[in-house]
Design a binder for these strands. Sequence first.
DNA 1: CTTTTTACATACTGTACGGTATGATCGTAG
DNA 2: CTACGATCATACCGTACAGTATGTAAAAAG
Lengths: 207, 207
Amino acid sequence: MVVKRNPEQTRQSILAAAFEEIHRNGFRGTSLERILADTGLTKGALYHHFPNKDALGHAIIDEVLRRQIWARWIEPMLQDEDPIRGLQGTLRELTTDDVRLVCERGCPLNNLAQEMSPADPIFREKIQALYRLWREKITEALARGQGRGYVREDIDCGDTATFIISSLEGAAGLAKGMGEPAVVAACVGGIDRYLESLRSHQLFPIR
Amino acid sequence: MVVKRNPEQTRQSILAAAFEEIHRNGFRGTSLERILADTGLTKGALYHHFPNKDALGHAIIDEVLRRQIWARWIEPMLQDEDPIRGLQGTLRELTTDDVRLVCERGCPLNNLAQEMSPADPIFREKIQALYRLWREKITEALARGQGRGYVREDIDCGDTATFIISSLEGAAGLAKGMGEPAVVAACVGGIDRYLESLRSHQLFPIR
DNA sequence: CTTTTTACATACTGTACGGTATGATCGTAG
DNA sequence: CTACGATCATACCGTACAGTATGTAAAAAG
């Protein structure tokens, strides 16, 4: 059987396997050999696509994590006319779909941030950039929500966005730390009520 | 100069140095040699007091972290007749005293939880026990606060305690992840308003 | 004082793992 | 078809670091 070569697919499979292993065991807790065993590749392939282990981690942030955050948290919020409802929608998924996943592995971005942010400046830079992107999008969405009459006018959108992300990461982190699925429920409930408190109380949104 | 031997003090100095290094570089990122260099001791001393590196980490949770959580978060809350005011008091310290420390190193318990909880069952067990203790004390304090008329009657004290801890850890984690002192301010503001929303609205507390 | 145990210091070992050197095969340009 | 760079595989290297073996001085026991 002659295996067709597909460099880009090879690269993606390495990224996917590395993401999985790192999500499970952390960056330092994951050996390159383990990643390669998952993909069926060898070191030659890995070091052809990535100069070293750190660069692989950097690529995971820039590509895998950025996509995930965007698809899961930003896109639905942008789709919905009411940003609060958009966020609550994604929030609800956490309590139904992947409670166990969160309890066992936590949030991959939070994991990497806590582990690698103080250790390597490039990691820190890329993680901060991703957090800033996330916060910026929530901030903008909240501001638009204010204009549309969905969100209270007396809140600072930037600070609110910061606190929302902080609460989400805190929930994922504590769920992972305590290992109890009930933690997810309690925290999601708290966040949901907080989001609800951001609503403008006009009965009918403008336009 | 004849150095008087003091085994317990030696043990404590190892624990203190290990806590510092681990708080800075994480558990796996900290080498035993580094800890010993800080203390001026050698491996003989370390392996006399602790069977291995893991056991040292376990002792840090049981002794150092437990004491810190108790002194910083539980004790002031118990001292105050109004648990909400007690929590807010400690919260205020974060924004004044050690903002930079939090931004650079995060919460030591959260750090250890995210890094070691999935890796080692004993770590996970001890971390969970500490979180449960913390949550239990907040839960009890809130319940007493309800009886005294300080805390709203319509909240679930356990879920509320869980969300409080989650928010605190989330704030520390995001501050570390983003590296911005402003994150602490924004999150503390959010938590403070959340705590305020837990207040009973009777004008005069019972008794 | 003698003996034993405690509390360390010093020197060494084993290994896991990130990284490299080299070679083979595929795809593609000319 | 030929040549050459791209895409991998295989075998090996260096080292950081947890852990061990052994020795020694200080307390404690007797």
